[in-house]
């Protein structure tokens, strides 16, 4: 089987191909394995301001056009939005996507090649667009299953100002 080309799935010019290869090489050069980056008992947390634009970026990536999530629209720009809870709210699984940026030391290069394999999420309260959430993670297990290495985390997402608990989660990452 011949190796695929950089532009196998989308058209690119020579300069785009070179920039892509340079970017991937830069990611790969400093990367450690996820398994080595995390120790059981590691606790980390960060605050994330969920801006209207962040929600739009998330939704557009998965083609979810539910107007409940719109605190920003082309032409009108910022607005309160409208949902069954009043103003615009955040899609139920959005904060789960950002846990990855918390559960290892984000000041180090990302452990590319790792894969998310499982989550068990309790959705407790709707998150208003514009909220700042605190994502707290704790590594609770590292295990090998069928010769594959996994790291398990417990996650809690709360409102950074009010302490309202929005989501809890258990999740597994398959390491290189």
């Amino acid at each position: 089987m011949t190796a695929p080309e950089t532009d196998a799935l989308r058209p690119m010019t020579e300069i785009q191909i070179q920039q892509t290869r340079d970017f991937v090489n830069s990611l790969n050069a400093k990367s450690q394995t996820y398994w080595d980056m995390v120790a059981v008992g590691d606790e980390l947390w960060r605050d994330l301001h969920i801006t209207p634009e962040l929600v739009i970026l998330y939704c557009d990536g998965v083609e979810d056009y539910n107007p409940w999530y719109e605190g920003w629209l082309m032409n009108t720009w910022y607005g309160e939005g409208e949902s069954p809870f009043g103003g615009a709210i955040v899609p139920p699984m959005l904060v789960s996507h950002f846990v990855l940026s918390v559960q290892f030391d984000h000041t180090k290069p990302f452990a590319i090649g790792s894969i998310h394999t499982f989550h068990d999420s309790e959705i407790i309260e709707p998150i208003p667009v514009g909220a700042t959430v605190r994502i707290h993670t704790r590594a609770i297990d590292k295990f090998v299953k069928r010769d594959r290495r996994y790291v398990r985390h417990e996650v809690t997402v709360t409102d950074a100002e009010t302490g309202t608990r929005y989501l809890t989660e258990t999740r597994d990452i398959l390491s290189r």
Binding site: D64, F118, H119, D120, I123, P126
Partner: peptide
Amino acid sequence: AYLSEMCVNHFGRNFFVNARMVCKY
């Protein structure tokens, strides 16, 4: 996110309060 969109269509506001979602890839 795709599965969540389906669930919001069917549970509406109920999927934002005291709900649970478990996924294995």
